[in-house]
Nucleic acid binder design. Structure first.
Lengths: 239, 239
DNA sequence: GAGTGGTCTAGACCACTAA
DNA sequence: TAGTGGTCTAGACCACTCT
């Protein structure tokens, strides 16, 4: 009765990730060596390395030849929060999202251009406001567009901590394999300024995301606007 | 008389990358299968996969189980330009950078806070303006801070297409292993607006980068300000 | 059913770090 | 010098796509 289709390296990575996020392994602490992990979990060194590669890609650990592997220091919160679709979930978990009821729209010219889609295309529109846990002012206003095929389930979408695409995964078997993001600086419009509680013209980060399913079909788009002074996007890369 | 210390997968990746960037392989074109590449280059499948993994990470190719590997479509220009330090070089190659002479500074309070360093710390400061090839208006004004140990060579830094850290690699054996980036939206100051030819208060992307060498020693920092309407930061992730 | 990429094993040698 | 992570080989089985 063993699990299937979830790779062993992913299981191992989740376990180590949980240890780090729960601070059972603290910043600076050494991880077991590859040989030790390999023996302890009864998997090959390849599998161990795949797991550690994932964690390194998320910025959670740091590796050095000859020296070893240690838990990365630095803020554990939003750092590299958007490294991959798994990490996107963690980001969503630290904030909550108040959404409006979904309604069908056909893209008008300006939003079509913004999203890079043909005008008139049908989508399901949801407007959401994101607030970090414990904070008062919102960190984003988001316009999300869902593929019309989700029409039967959009009424069951809920506000809260769970990301939209995660809810859709549960409700409709959606499986995102790729996300593109375009990040730009824009001056807040009057409407955005009102929603975010900032001055008109204040600098904002606008992040346009396109979510693709297996086989490159576009299933969700979103345009988020974050107040400049309340939001920093962090990326870390090694190579 | 073979090369050393440059891994075979990196050689293979460079070769395929060059084919793609030179459009000998066009968007949508299929790449040879892993087995074919393995046979053609006389390396194991592992080595082929490491090379392809690198290209996929840069957003240059797209892979699908059962289906094959194809050159990614979409703008080849700045997309995922900052995926890793190698790609950073390509980004620098498509633009040129006019720099001022380096001079020693000790960080004043505001810039120290911005860069996350203690006030008074000694660095070598270089101011640079970046212009895309063939364009008139600049896409960035950058303040770079180099580690004082580079003092003997900073006079040999040149304007042009080569990135600062790449020049330092050549001149002083620098080897960057990690880069962190913080991206924020800010309103242009009067000084920035003047340098960039935009209106005061226009939304700009500010990217603060920290460059680390082997062993986590900080060797370069930079703060770049890009006009919002001329610069988009793109990220693509799969998982 | 043939062929693709994804996962995984059991080895090996090497570059590098630290003691 | 002993031990680390980085590279690499030669296999294997599987999930998936395409026909």
């Amino acid at each position: 009765m063993s699990e299937r289709t979830v790779p062993r390296y992913a299981v191992l990575a989740s376990q180590l990730r949980a240890d780090i996020l729960a601070r059972r392994l603290k910043p600076g602490d050494p991880l077991p060596t590859e040989a030790q992990l390999s023996a302890a979990f009864g998997v090959s060194r390849f599998t161990v390395r795949e797991a550690l590669r994932a964690l390194a890609g998320e910025g959670l650990i740091r590796r050095r030849r000859g020296s070893g592997t240690r838990v990365a220091d630095g803020r554990p919160a939003l750092r590299q929060a958007l490294a991959d679709t798994r990490a996107l979930l963690q980001y969503a978990a630290a904030s909550s999202f108040q959404i409006s009821p979904a309604r069908p729209v056909s893209l008008r010219a300006p939003e079509a251009a913004l999203l890079g889609r043909p005008p008139g295309e049908p989508w399901l529109h949801v407007r959401g406001i994101r607030v970090m846990d414990g904070a008062a002012a919102p960190i984003a206003v988001t316009d999300a567009y869902l593929h019309p095929r989700f029409a039967p389930v959009v009424d069951r979408l809920e506000s809260g901590h769970e990301a939209l695409f995660s809810q859709l995964a549960r409700l409709a078997g959606l499986r995102i394999t790729r996300v593109t993001q375009e990040i730009q600086a824009v001056n807040a419009t009057a409407a955005e300024a009102g929603l975010l509680g900032i001055g008109r013209g204040a600098a904002c980060l606008r992040i346009i995301r396109h979510y693709f399913e297996d086989g490159d079909s576009l299933v969700e788009m979103s345009c988020s606007v974050h107040p400049g002074e309340r939001f920093t996007y962090m990326v870390e890369t090694s190579g």
